[in-house]
Design a protein around this nucleic acid. Structure first.
Length: 430
RNA sequence: UCCGGAGUAGCUCAAUGGUAGAGCGGGUGGCUGUUAACCACUAGGCUGGGGGUUCAAGUCCCUCCUCCGGAGCCA
C-alpha cells in the first residue's frame, strides 16, 4: 500500500492508501464517524461506519482527539459530500500520540490568545494558507532577481553602527564591544554591487522602535536589490516589474490559498506595469485636494498614504521627496537640490509603503558632508566612503518589506499573521 | 513616549450597586452522511493586583500591572 499526501489522493481513487498527519476535527452521528485529517498539504474526510470497520478502528475514532497525530489507511473515493471532493473509507486508525486538551478549539478566539499559542495556531488552514503564500512570495523574489542575472550576496546582521542614524537599533554586547542588529543590508549591498554589478540581499532586519501598529514588527524580512550604473528611472522600472512579477506568480501558483483567505483577486490582477509615477509635490497636491491636513515637507503618515494610493488602481510610485526627511546616502536631484532621488512604492487598498529606495550619492565630497550634517560617526563609514574613492559609479536600489507585501497580497488586517513567529514590542514568545 | 480601549469559567462573551450566567471546549449518554454537526445531562469562578466609597462592588473612585489599537518612526 502506498503512503501519500492529501493533495495527491485523486490519483488513488478506488485504491487503498496510507496518510500520515494530524486530526483536524471530528464529527459523529452515532454509529458513523467523520475524521478530518490534515497533513500539511490539505485536509481529507475519513469515514468509518460501525457496520464496515473493525471494532478497534471504531473505538480509535471515539478515542482520538483534536490534533492527535494519526496514521490512517483506507480506500479513496470521490464524494461530493466530502470537503475537497474526495474521502477515505477508513480501514485502520493508528494513533501515534494522543493529544489531550488541545487549547485551540474550532470556535472563535482573540488574537492575544492565538498569539500566545502561535506554535499551534500555525496549524490552522488559514495560517497554513498565509505561510504558503509567504513562501511563494519569497521564492518569486529570488526567481525574479536570479533570472535577471543578479547575485544573492548576504550582508551581516551584526553591524558596528546605524545604517541610517535616525532610527533606534537593538544593541548587543559583542566580546566587550557594542554591536547593533542591522536595520538594512543596503550599505553592504552597495559594496557588493561594485563587485558584481547586480546584487540583492535577503535577510532579517531589526528596528527597536516602539511602534505599535498593524504595519510594524521589530524583526522583519527585506529583499534589497542594488544595481551599479542604475539611476532613479532604472530603479523605478525594476521595482514595478518586480512587484508585478511577485503578485502575478502568487495569483498563478496559490489559487487555492487565496480562496481559503477569501481574497478578492481583481485588485491583484491589475498589478501590471507601468505603475503611475508621481512626485512628492504631486502627492501633496492630492492630499490638499482631499482636504487632508498636511504640512509640506513632512513625511506621509499611514493615513496620507491611503489617500494617495486610493487615487490609483495599482501600486503608485512616489519620487523626489524633500531631502531633509530622507537618509544621508540619498543622491540629491540636480534640478532641485532640496529634493532627494528617492522613491517609495505605495501598495493599494490602504497597505501603504511596501518599497523604499532610490539613487545613492556617489560623490565622495558630497557624501562626506551629508554624513557630517547628520552627525554620524565618520570612522564607521570609512569603508563606505571608500566605495566613492575607488571606481565610484551612479547606482540605485530599493528594499521591499516581505511582511507588508504578504499582508497586502493576502489582504490581512495585521502583519503579525504574515510571519511564523512575529516579534513585536510586546511579543517575544513563543 | 502620547492618546484611546479592554481585562469575568480553558476559550468567546453577558450580567440597573443587591444570590456570577450563556455558547463553545472537557466529561457522561443518544443519533448511519456529518460540514465550526446536532440533542440531553454534568463539572468548572480569589470577576488582572492593591487600596478606597458603601449596609452591599464584577459594576463607582484612586493606583499599579498586562494586553489591544492608533500617533510618531518606518518596510
Amino acid at each position: 500500500m502506498d503512503t501519500t499526501y492529501i493533495n495527491e489522493v485523486s490519483k488513488y481513487s478506488g485504491k487503498e492508501v496510507r496518510i500520515r498527519g494530524w486530526l483536524y476535527n471530528k464529527r459523529s452521528s452515532g454509529k458513523l464517524w467523520f475524521l478530518l485529517v490534515r497533513d500539511g498539504t490539505g485536509i481529507i474526510q475519513c469515514v468509518a461506519s460501525k457496520a464496515d470497520v473493525d471494532e478497534s478502528t471504531f473505538n480509535a475514532c471515539e478515542e482520538i482527539t483534536q490534533e492527535s497525530s494519526v496514521i490512517v489507511t483506507g480506500k479513496i473515493s470521490e464524494d461530493k459530500r466530502a470537503p475537497g471532493g474526495y474521502e477515505m473509507q477508513l480501514g485502520t486508525v493508528e494513533i501515534v500520540q494522543l493529544a489531550k486538551d488541545y487549547p485551540i478549539t474550532p470556535k472563535e478566539h482573540g488574537t492575544a490568545f492565538l498569539m500566545d499559542h502561535r506554535h499551534l495556531w500555525i496549524r490552522s488552514s488559514r495560517q497554513v494558507a498565509i505561510l504558503k503564500i509567504r513562501h511563494e512570495i519569497i521564492k518569486s523574489c529570488r526567481d525574479f532577481f536570479d533570472n535577471r542575472g543578479f547575485t544573492l550576496v548576504d550582508t551581516p546582521v551584526f553591524t558596528p553602527a546605524a545604517c541610517e542614524g535616525t532610527t533606534t537599533l537593538f544593541e548587543t554586547e559583542y566580546f566587550g564591544r557594542k554591536a547593533y542588529l542591522t536595520q538594512s543590508g543596503q550599505l553592504y549591498s552597495e559594496a557588493t554591487a561594485a563587485a558584481m554589478g547586480k546584487v540583492y540581499c535577503f535577510g532579517p532586519t531589526f528596528r527597536a522602535e516602539k511602534s505599535k501598529t498593524r504595519r510594524h514588527l521589530t524583526e522583519f524580512w527585506m529583499v534589497e536589490p542594488e544595481v551599479a550604473y542604475a539611476d532613479l528611472d532604472d530603479n523605478m522600472k525594476l521595482a514595478e516589474e518586480f512587484v508585478s512579477y511577485v503578485v502575478q506568480r502568487v495569483l498563478e501558483e496559490k489559487k487555492e490559498e487565496l480562496k481559503v483567505l477569501e481574497r478578492d483577486t481583481a485588485p491583484l490582477e491589475r498589478v501590471i506595469p507601468p505603475f503611475p509615477r508621481i512626485s512628492y509635490d504631486e502627492a501633496v497636491e492630492i492630499l490638499k485636494k482631499n482636504n487632508v491636513d498636511f504640512e509640506y515637507g513632512d513625511d506621509f503618515g499611514g493615513g496620507d498614504e491611503t489617500v494617495i494610493s486610493d487615487n490609483f488602481d495599482r501600486p503608485v510610485m512616489v519620487h523626489r521627496y524633500p531631502a531633509a526627511i530622507k537618509a544621508f546616502y540619498m543622491k540629491l536631484d540636480e534640478k532641485d537640490p532640496t529634493k532627494a532621488l528617492g522613491v517609495d512604492v505605495l501598495a493599494p487598498e490602504g497597505y501603504g509603503e511596501i518599497i523604499g529606495g532610490g539613487q545613492r550619492e556617489e560623490n565622495y565630497e558630497l557624501l562626506l558632508s551629508r554624513i557630517k550634517e547628520h552627525n554620524l560617526p565618520e570612522e564607521v563609514f570609512d569603508w563606505y566612503l571608500d566605495l566613492r574613492k575607488y571606481g565610484s559609479v551612479p547606482h540605485s536600489g530599493f528594499g521591499m518589506g516581505i511582511e507588508r507585501t504578504v499582508a497586502w497580497i493576502c489582504k490581512l488586517p495585521h502583519v503579525r499573521e504574515t510571519i511564523p513567529f512575529p516579534r513585536m514590542m510586546h511579543r517575544l514568545t513563543p
